[in-house]
Simulated scan of single mutants.
Amino acid sequence: MVTINWTSLHPSTFILLGIPGLESAHIWISIPFGLVYLMALLGNCIFLCLIRTDPGLHQPMYLFLSMLSAVDLMLSTSTLPKLLSLFWFNDGEISFEACLTQMFMIHLLSIMESGFFLAMAFDRYVAICHPLRHSAILTHPVVGGLGLVVAFRGVLLLTPYPFLLRWLPYCRTNIIAHTYCEFMAIIKLACVETMVIRAYGLMVAFLSSGLDFLLIICSYILILRAVFHLPSKDARLKTLGTCSSHICVVLLFYFPCFFSFLTHRFGHQIPRYIHIFVANIYLLVPPMMNPIIYGARTKSIRERVIRVLISKRIPIFTQS
């Protein structure tokens, strides 16, 4: 990678380095990353098609799942194509405007994903704690309204980000030691005091993913209270089974999310390549795993996938 001498206060381009310390392995790393991207595209597209075409899946949980799948598709696509271009062709150059756009989209979609996890936790809470009122509370207009609230919250919190970063002077370097444009990675290049902007970033993180995670924990505390009041062990296990998929995807999303967030700000002893690798896992693996987990553990979706596969095979056998 050629280092560019750069003294302008407002760069026209940034240079993404990829994963510092693992440059020689970029090609090999790109293979699983590319496969993850393809599986994420395939799985989420299948989910969206199934939910759209099957009226039996037009229920709150599946509608929230379709919103999550749409966000996962956009989140993967906002990072993977540029990452693969960097790893395959050493093309790390990205314009200043494109970098700010990518940063905005990554953080916006991550906040929206967190919001949909909270909405799905609310759906599980109503379904278990107030089953007789579930259809009356979570009507289609309410589900759509919750989706709009999740999107509006993300836009409201994230809109200041590109403007704040645009006003900063960058007189150190235009090289970003990362695989994509990330808020903290960009702000570290500024040559002025950024304490206020960093504080705003912390506030955004708390009001989005942090608050969502606390509310999800509260919802599951109430769910567990209701489950333990059920009369039989089988009923308790069956009820908890309806939450297992959601619990798995929540843990898969929030653990690397919090690890990435905390190490960027406080984990100065952790090697940079570990942080960047985990940051990529946080963006790439959940979009792939979400449809796999729900497809494997949700009977309704499993049955519909099998039904589609069988219907596609029948004409082949009849012709032969």
Results as ranks from 00 to 15, higher is better:
residue 164 L to P: 05
residue 166 R to M: 03
residue 166 R to D: 15
residue 167 W to M: 01
residue 172 R to T: 00
residue 172 R to V: 00
residue 177 A to P: 02
residue 180 Y to W: 00
residue 181 C to S: 04
residue 183 F to I: 03
residue 184 M to H: 14
residue 184 M to S: 13
residue 185 A to P: 11
residue 186 I to H: 05
residue 190 A to Y: 04
residue 191 C to A: 07
residue 192 V to Y: 09
residue 192 V to C: 07
residue 193 E to P: 02
residue 194 T to C: 03
residue 198 R to N: 06
residue 199 A to R: 06
residue 202 L to V: 04
residue 204 V to Q: 11
residue 204 V to R: 08
residue 204 V to C: 08
residue 206 F to Q: 15
residue 207 L to I: 15
residue 207 L to K: 06
residue 208 S to W: 03
residue 209 S to V: 13
residue 211 L to M: 12
residue 211 L to K: 01
residue 211 L to H: 07
residue 213 F to N: 06
residue 214 L to T: 05
residue 215 L to P: 01
residue 215 L to E: 13
residue 216 I to F: 01
residue 216 I to P: 06
residue 219 S to L: 09
residue 223 I to W: 08
residue 223 I to Y: 12
residue 223 I to C: 12
residue 226 A to M: 10
residue 228 F to L: 08
residue 229 H to L: 15
residue 231 P to A: 09
residue 231 P to L: 13
residue 232 S to W: 14
residue 232 S to M: 15
residue 235 A to Q: 15
residue 237 L to N: 05
residue 237 L to P: 04
residue 237 L to H: 08
residue 241 G to P: 04
residue 241 G to V: 05
residue 241 G to E: 07
residue 242 T to S: 08
residue 243 C to Y: 08
residue 244 S to W: 01
residue 244 S to P: 01
residue 245 S to P: 01
residue 245 S to D: 12
residue 247 I to E: 04
residue 248 C to G: 10
residue 248 C to Y: 10
residue 248 C to T: 03
residue 250 V to H: 02
residue 250 V to I: 13
residue 250 V to A: 13
residue 250 V to E: 00
residue 252 L to S: 02
residue 253 F to N: 04
residue 254 Y to L: 09
residue 254 Y to Q: 07
residue 254 Y to W: 08
residue 255 F to I: 00
residue 257 C to A: 11
residue 257 C to P: 07
residue 259 F to R: 02
residue 259 F to S: 10
residue 260 S to H: 11
residue 262 L to V: 09
residue 262 L to S: 13
residue 263 T to W: 12
residue 263 T to I: 12
residue 264 H to G: 09
residue 264 H to D: 05
residue 266 F to G: 03
residue 267 G to C: 08
residue 267 G to W: 01
residue 269 Q to N: 07
residue 269 Q to P: 04
residue 269 Q to E: 10
residue 272 R to M: 05
